[in-house]
Computed example of a mutant assay.
Amino acid sequence: MANKIPLSVIGVVSSVLAEYFYSHSKLNSLFLESGAPGADPGGNCEAKCQRWLMRCNDEPTVDALAVFGRVIQRFMDQEPSDQLQAVSDGQKRIRDSLAINQLSYQLNGFIILAGSSPAAKTLTDYLKVGDFASIEVEFERAVSHISQDPHAAITAASSIIEALCKTDIDKVGLEMPNKQTAIPLWRVVQQHLGLNLDPTLREDQKKILQGLASIIDGVAAYRTHIGSAHGRGLRPPEIVASEARLAVNAAHTLVIFIMEKWQGVMPHT
């Protein structure tokens, strides 16, 4: 079947994930959150991954490649890091294995035929059409990581902010900044959002927007220091769930605000 995970890919991915997570509890959470069927199949970390991915293939009601994409998303969406060479090596092993089977990995957990485009919508697509429900799902996914992996939750929240700003710049036809990270992107976006026409409320709204800039700065700084995308080093700074939740919820407020502004001042595409 077209949606089955090739056996050679299962072998490579199981080895990579087992070495990276090296924790039964983390692997259990990862597979269950990704929609893998059934309970923990047992075995060592590598065997557990193999058995669960094989179970995805064997279950006729499961889109095995869709589950597989979600399983490897957290690992594959990390940016290359000199501090974690093993991550870069693992990503290459997975990509090479997929390529041999005429498949490729796309950002946000999509597995597609090599050379084709994802049939499902990406995060940017959700933003372009103002798909609030799908954006809520992305934030729910970030929230679900807070207790087990607050670093990954921070990375997800920051990525959504950056995608939102890039989409806004593209929709309005603004000039993309040279450095495409959260703060430079936000500086471009906030200039055209528009303020309340009432003079008093206009000043109040300016203060709120200044606060939003601080939120973006804080979330981006968190991501740099402890987010999963930049490598965590041997002893990364600690962050507790409540701190990660504050950052994710703040990012959620900002994203929904801008999307609602689009609904009011921009036509649907």
Rank of each mutant, 00 (worst) to 15 (best):
193 L>Y: 10
73 Q>H: 06
117 S>V: 11
99 A>V: 13
165 C>D: 02
76 M>I: 09
82 D>P: 01
119 A>N: 09
159 S>D: 12
124 T>S: 00
57 N>G: 09
191 Q>K: 15
58 D>A: 07
107 L>C: 07
105 Y>R: 06
108 N>Y: 11
65 L>Q: 15
130 G>T: 04
83 Q>L: 13
72 I>L: 03
100 I>H: 10
117 S>K: 10
154 I>Y: 02
65 L>M: 14
180 Q>R: 01
126 Y>S: 00
168 D>E: 15
100 I>S: 11
73 Q>L: 01
187 R>F: 06
125 D>M: 03
111 I>C: 10
88 S>K: 02
189 V>D: 14
166 K>H: 08
153 A>I: 10
168 D>P: 04
93 R>S: 01
118 P>Y: 14
194 G>R: 04
96 D>V: 13
152 A>S: 13
103 L>Y: 14
107 L>E: 12
190 Q>T: 14
67 V>A: 00
113 L>H: 09
129 V>C: 10
70 R>V: 11
189 V>R: 06
180 Q>G: 01
131 D>T: 07
145 H>S: 03
159 S>Y: 07
68 F>I: 13
112 I>Q: 07
109 G>L: 12
131 D>G: 04
177 P>W: 01
146 I>L: 15
53 L>T: 14
160 I>P: 11
77 D>W: 07
89 D>R: 03
179 K>I: 15
182 A>Q: 05
151 H>M: 08
195 L>H: 13
153 A>K: 08
70 R>Y: 12
123 L>S: 02
126 Y>F: 10
63 D>P: 11
125 D>A: 00
171 K>S: 11
130 G>E: 07
162 E>G: 02
133 A>R: 09
118 P>K: 12
61 T>M: 04
112 I>D: 08
56 C>K: 03
191 Q>A: 05
157 A>R: 10
143 V>D: 04
88 S>G: 02
129 V>N: 09
67 V>Y: 15
184 P>Q: 02
85 Q>A: 13
175 E>M: 13
191 Q>E: 15
71 V>F: 05
69 G>L: 04
184 P>K: 04
192 H>N: 10
135 I>C: 04
167 T>W: 07
151 H>S: 08
126 Y>R: 00
80 P>C: 00
102 Q>C: 10
184 P>A: 02
67 V>R: 00
184 P>I: 03
91 Q>Y: 03
169 I>R: 05
76 M>Y: 03
129 V>W: 09
126 Y>Q: 00
79 E>M: 05
179 K>D: 15
154 I>E: 01
133 A>Y: 08
103 L>D: 14
179 K>E: 15
53 L>R: 01
55 R>W: 13
86 A>T: 12
68 F>S: 01
185 L>I: 07
68 F>W: 11
70 R>C: 05
194 G>A: 06
102 Q>A: 15
102 Q>E: 15
99 A>I: 13
175 E>F: 13
115 G>A: 01
54 M>I: 09
98 L>S: 13
57 N>Q: 12
121 K>Y: 11
